[in-house]
Design a protein around this nucleic acid. Sequence first.
DNA 1: TAATGTTGGTTTAAAAAACAAACCTATTGG
DNA 2: CCAATAGGTTTGTTTTTTAAACCAACATTA
Lengths: 394, 394
Amino acid sequence: MATQKKIGSINMSQVIRTIWLYEGISRIEISRTLGLDKSTITKIVNTLLGMGIVRNVSEGTAGPQGGRKPVKLAINRDFGYILGIEIQTDRYMAVVIDLQGKICFSYSNLINFSRRPLKKVFLEILQTITNRIEKTKLLGIVLGLPGLINSDKGIIHRSKPLNIIEDVYFLDSIIDLIEVPLLIENDANSCCWGELVFNRANISKNFIFVLGELREHQSSSIGKHVLAIGIGVVIDSKVHYGENFSAGEFQSVFREVTNTTQFSLPDNQFSRIEADQEIRKAVFQELSKNIALLVNVFNLSQVVFGGAIEEYKNEIIPILKDEIEKNWSYEYNTGCRISFSHHNAQSVAYGSACMFLEYLFSTPSVDTGQNEYLPRGIELFQLILSQKVNNNNL
Amino acid sequence: MATQKKIGSINMSQVIRTIWLYEGISRIEISRTLGLDKSTITKIVNTLLGMGIVRNVSEGTAGPQGGRKPVKLAINRDFGYILGIEIQTDRYMAVVIDLQGKICFSYSNLINFSRRPLKKVFLEILQTITNRIEKTKLLGIVLGLPGLINSDKGIIHRSKPLNIIEDVYFLDSIIDLIEVPLLIENDANSCCWGELVFNRANISKNFIFVLGELREHQSSSIGKHVLAIGIGVVIDSKVHYGENFSAGEFQSVFREVTNTTQFSLPDNQFSRIEADQEIRKAVFQELSKNIALLVNVFNLSQVVFGGAIEEYKNEIIPILKDEIEKNWSYEYNTGCRISFSHHNAQSVAYGSACMFLEYLFSTPSVDTGQNEYLPRGIELFQLILSQKVNNNNL
DNA sequence: TAATGTTGGTTTAAAAAACAAACCTATTGG
DNA sequence: CCAATAGGTTTGTTTTTTAAACCAACATTA
C-alpha cells in the first residue's frame, strides 16, 4: 500500500523547504528549526549546493556577543522557471514564475475553441508561449481549468464551461508530446496553491478561496451573465480534494431546484447583477450565509476572494463579516479574516504554477496520497536534473 | 519549531499500527505493506515482542506452491485497558476497552452537579469507576465533554451545557492527582475517534459525525426540549479541530438571530419536537440542507449520526439523501453514505477511549500539531512502560 | 592588543537504521 | 527423496544521523 520513501529524502526535502520558506536562513537556524544536528545540515546543504538548488548568498552579522558570522542560504533563482496556464471558455492566461514565486513574465490572449478539443487548443497555446521564453530552463507546466479535475491522475471528469461531459484522460493523452513535467488542476484549487505559496511563511492552515466569475449563462443570449462560484478548500495547509476530487463544488442551500444557477435568484433576474446593486446585495448575502456555515463548522481562519467578483470587494466585506458573526453563537470572535487575491486576472495561472512550486518544496509525507505522474520534494528535483542531462545529450 | 522524531520511531510506529489494523498479519506482509525490508521487520517485531506489545498468535497456512507457514502477529490484548468517560449535564457514561477496541466493561449513572466544579465531579466519578476495574492495567483515560475544547492543551474554552463561560485549564489543574495519562476531548469529536477506530481497516477519509441530543432548553421549565447538534469533522482521516479548536460548532443558515436554538424553528415550538412528526420533518430538512452543503463542498464520503437523534433514523435518511442530491449539480452521484453510530448511548465514552487508542497506534507525522501532554505511537508506549516500572517500584 | 568568550560551521569517529545476501525452516508437489 | 517455494533469521554492508572535537571569525575587555 504505502510506498517507502528513501528515509534520507525526507530530511533533505525538509531542508530545501526550510530554505525556501525562510530565505537567507543560516545552517544553524535550519538545524534548530528542524531539530537536526548542525553537522547533518552541513552535509545536506553541501549536497544541495552541488546540485545547484541552493546558493550561499551572503554573510550575516555576528551576534551581540560576538562569534562567527552566519552564512545566509537561499534557493538558486536561476535554477529554472515554471509555467502556469489558465484556460477558460474564451481566453487564456500564461504566467511564468521563478522558484521564489516571483512573476517573470505573463501573457494573455483570446481563444477560439470552435469545436476543437481541449488538447489541440492547449498545444497551440503552449507553442505560442514557449516561443517567447527560454525553453531550456522550463522545469514544469501546470494547467488550471474550471471543472471537476483529478489532478493526481490527470483526469478531467466534468467541466460545464468547457463542455466536457465525460471523463477525459488528459495527461495520459498528452504526456508523450511534452518534454517537461505537466500537471492539471481545478481553477479554484490553483488559486489556493497561489495563496499557499504567496503567504508561505505565515499562512492560515485552514481557509477557502472563493473564485467568483461572471460567466455567460448556459442557455441565454450574449450579454446575460450569471455569477459562477467555485471554491478551493485548504485544510491543514493542504489543498483538500475530497473522496472523488469534487470538493469545492458549490450550490447555495437556498437554491430552488428549478433554477439553473447556483443561487435562489430566478434565472431571468441574474442578467441585471452588474447593473443592480440591490440584486448584488441579495446574492452576496446568500453567498455569505453559505460561506458563514463553512467558516464556523470548519473553523476557518480566512476567506479569500478572487475572480471578477473582486470588483465588488467593498460590497462583500461587510456582508460576509456580518453573516459570519450572526452564525456564531459565542460572545468572542473566532477572527476569520476576509481578503482578496493579490493577483487579479492572474490568480489562476499564477496559482497553477505555484502548485508545481509546492510540489518541489514539499516534504513527502508518509501517508499523503500520491500523484501518479510526479514525486515531491528532493525526488522531483532529482527527476528534473536527470531529464536535464538527457536533454543536453540529445 | 518542529521537534525531531527519533528517526527509527517512525517505522516502529508504522509496524505497530499495521499489526493493529490487520490483526493476524505476517512479517512478510508487513514488509510488503510498508515497503521495508523483511529483515528490518524481523528486528522491529522482535523489539515489540520484547516490550510485550505484540504476540505471535498462530501459524497460517502455506501457499499453494509450498513454502514455510507464515507466523501471524497480533497486538497483545492483555497489555492493558483504556477508560473513556462521557460527562453530560445530568449523567455520565464510562466505557473500558482493550487495545483492539473491544468493549470490556461499561457503567453509567446520574450526576448531581449541584454547583460543584467539574473537576470535583470528575474525580468522584473516577473513584467509582476505578474501584470496579483492575487498576494496574489501566493505560490511559479520556474524558469527553460538550463544548469548545482544546484537547492539545487540555483547556475547556466554553461549554454551555456545563455552564463554563471562561477558559478552564482542566488538565493542568488535575494532572498531578492522576497517575495515568489523561486527555479531554469534545464529545462529537470523540465520536469521530470512535468511528476511526471501529472502521479502521477500511475507513472513509472524509466524514462528519452529527451528534444530536435532546437537551433541556436553557431558559425553560423542565420537559421542554431542544435538539442540540454538535458536529465532529474528520478530514483526511484526521479529526479536524480548526484554528481555535472550534470546528464543529453548528448553527443553521436559516436560523433567525432572535432564536436561542440552532434552528429557524421558533423557540416555543421546539418543545413539541418529540410529539409532532411534522415539526421533526421540518427540523430534519433544515438540518439536512445545511449538511448537504458541507457534504458537497467538502466532498465527504459519509455522514454518521449519533445521540438521541438516532431514534429517528428512518425519518432522517430519506430527507438527507434527497437534500444531498438536490444540492448536487452533476448527473452522477458522489455516493455519500449515511449511517448511524453502532454504539448508541456509549458513542461518546467509547469514542473518547478510542482517541487514546489512536494516539497509541498512530505514526508520529512530521508536520502534525502536537499534544502537549502526550506523544504518539511507540513513544507513548515507551512512556507507559516507564511509568509501569515506576509504579511497581513504589 | 592579547586574552577570553561566543557563535557559526566543518571534520571525524561512532551510533543507529535500513538493506542485501546468504542461510535456515517448513511446506507442496513430483 | 528431491526440487521448488515462501516465510523468517542471521550476518555483514551501506546509508544516515549524531556527538564531540575542532576551526573560523567575531565581540568584549583587561
